[in-house]
């Protein structure tokens, strides 16, 4: 299986480089800590308006939102690919018979591993604050987070390879990611939203993902939101992988 071997080759290289420069681990811990310490207490108060709430309940709503948020940030993978493009690494890869899908998938899988590590970390950090979740439910939630990462990081790579400039990439990502984040109900569940806003949010696939992860953290793996999110994210991810691997294959100048 040449494709699997090539994917493993690219993945290995990317992991090696990732582990060589472990700054991201520190950043990955500090960022969620900020939210847990500085924002979660505020949110608990805000949510208590609808009735008294325990710490555990509050973190069951808050932590899933944070996990989806970190997953959304994996679209920033595109910046890395622009640097590789500039260094000539992508062109050097493209002149070999290596599988083009592997060039993408090896990198995206690195992003998934990195993100799942971060997701586990966030979950564990929330435990002392009162979060409780069943292992099986958490694993299913991680599967959803992993899918989202695959979807967004491959989209990020396609964007980076197409735009070829950080200056074009940054405003582009901000404009797209901001409304997606707001409309996913990451910080406050959309149950408080007016009806028209709920309607708009329904076309955001990541709203469904947030709902699903929340249902899993609430201990309801049988909730409709879970299979709905899987049914929405899976074809989107396949589509993103397809389009993005084509940008790796296409002549880039």
């Amino acid at each position: 299986m040449k494709f699997l071997r090539d994917t493993w080759l690219v993945f290995q290289r990317q992991m090696q480089l990732l582990l060589r420069n472990p700054v991201w681990v520190a950043v990955g811990i500090i960022q969620p800590l900020f939210y847990l310490l500085l924002f979660a207490p505020l949110m608990k108060q805000a949510l208590s308006a609808g009735g008294p709430m325990t710490d555990e309940q509050a973190y069951r709503i808050f932590v899933p939102g944070m996990l989806v948020m970190v997953a959304l940030f994996s679209a920033f993978s595109g910046f890395g690919i622009i640097a590789e493009l500039r260094a000539g690494v992508i062109e050097r890869n493209r002149v070999t018979p290596v599988s083009r899908v592997a060039l993408l998938l090896g990198r995206s899988l690195r992003d998934v591993v990195q993100l799942l590590f971060q997701a586990v970390l966030v979950t564990l950090l929330a435990v002392p604050f009162g979060l409780r979740v069943a292992v099986g439910d958490a694993l299913l939630a991680y599967l959803l987070i992993g899918l989202m990462t695959l979807l967004l990081s491959s989209t990020g790579y396609a964007l980076g390879l197409t735009l070829r400039s950080e200056d074009a990439m940054a405003p582009m990502l901000n404009t797209v990611i901001q409304p997606i984040m707001l409309l996913a109900g990451i910080f406050l569940p959309l149950t408080f939203a007016p009806q028209w806003l709920k309607n708009v949010a329904n076309i955001n696939p990541f709203k469904w993902a947030t709902d699903a992860v929340r249902a899993l953290f609430a201990g309801n793996p049988g909730d409709d939101a879970v299979w709905q999110a899987l049914a929405i994210l899976t074809p989107l991810t396949v589509l993103a992988l397809f389009i993005s691997s084509r940008t790796f294959a296409k002549s880039v100048r």
Binding site: L17, N21, A87, G88, V89, E91, R92
Partner: peptide, 11 residues
Amino acid sequence: VAQGGSTWDES
């Protein structure tokens, strides 16, 4: 062998 180089700084 491309004109602009092809090596990655950290490798």
